[in-house]
């Protein structure tokens, strides 16, 4: 399809975004084309700002505007609890719940031998240092509930248990609003194993 050169360049860049195909990229490009110059500049500036100001927190490895990040720099949070997660976006998902008040540690991946990711590729040494130095009493391992996430959880648990710290794993079971009939066997089995007294 014929497009002016600058429009096809924009489409070419937009199509690189996750979940954006050729048609969606064209729609987005024409939306930007129709928007006011001010709006387009705001979008361009936001993209440049995010690349210019975002950095990795030297304590928890998450992404933030400042180093240390807002969470690591907040003295009001629970200093005795540390939640171990795979990626920075998991932190935002947990923070959205508003139910956890401790600190975080981002591993920057998960053990996955098929992808060539081993213990040396994750931020496990940093985690051990924090537990030893910061007087952590409980480590909550919140890696994804799949084979790689479980293996990572067990690996970390075996490694840090000698440090006399309580190690817990987030619960697994049935999602809210779901239907037992449609739950898969493994989830249903795990939900029985992790049942609670009420």
């Amino acid at each position: 399809m014929y497009h002016p050169k600058s429009v096809s360049t924009l489409i070419g860049e937009l199509v690189k975004l996750p979940g954006v195909g050729q048609k969606t990229a064209e729609r987005l490009a024409f939306f930007i084309l129709k928007a006011s110059k001010n709006e387009a500049e705001k979008l361009a500036r936001a993209i440049l700002d995010v690349k210019g100001t975002i950095r990795q927190c030297s304590i928890c490895n998450s992404i933030a505007d400042s180093d240390p990040c807002e969470i690591c720099g907040n003295p009001k949070r629970d200093k005795t609890t540390l939640c171990v997660i795979e990626e920075p976006h998991d932190l935002f998902a947990i923070e959205k719940t508003g139910g956890y008040r401790g600190y975080y540690h981002v591993l920057m991946g998960v053990l996955s031998p098929l992808d060539g990711v081993g213990p040396d590729d994750l931020s496990i040494d940093g985690l051990v240092n924090r537990i030893e130095k910061d007087g952590i009493k409980e480590v909550i391992i919140a890696t994804n509930p799949n084979m790689e996430g479980d293996a990572t959880a067990m690996y970390i648990s075996n490694l840090i248990k000698p440090l006399e710290v309580k190690v817990t794993r987030i619960a697994r079971g049935l999602p809210m609003g779901g239907d037992l009939e449609y739950a898969d066997e493994v989830t249903l089995m795990k939900s029985f194993e992790g049942r609670m007294e009420i």
């Binding site: 053990l111 031998p113 084979m147 790689e148 479980d150 293996a151 067990m154």
Partner: peptide, 8 residues
């Protein structure tokens, strides 16, 4: 298998 890194 996933409960042990060596087995994985």
């Amino acid at each position: 298998i996933g409960e042990d890194y060596k087995r994985l």
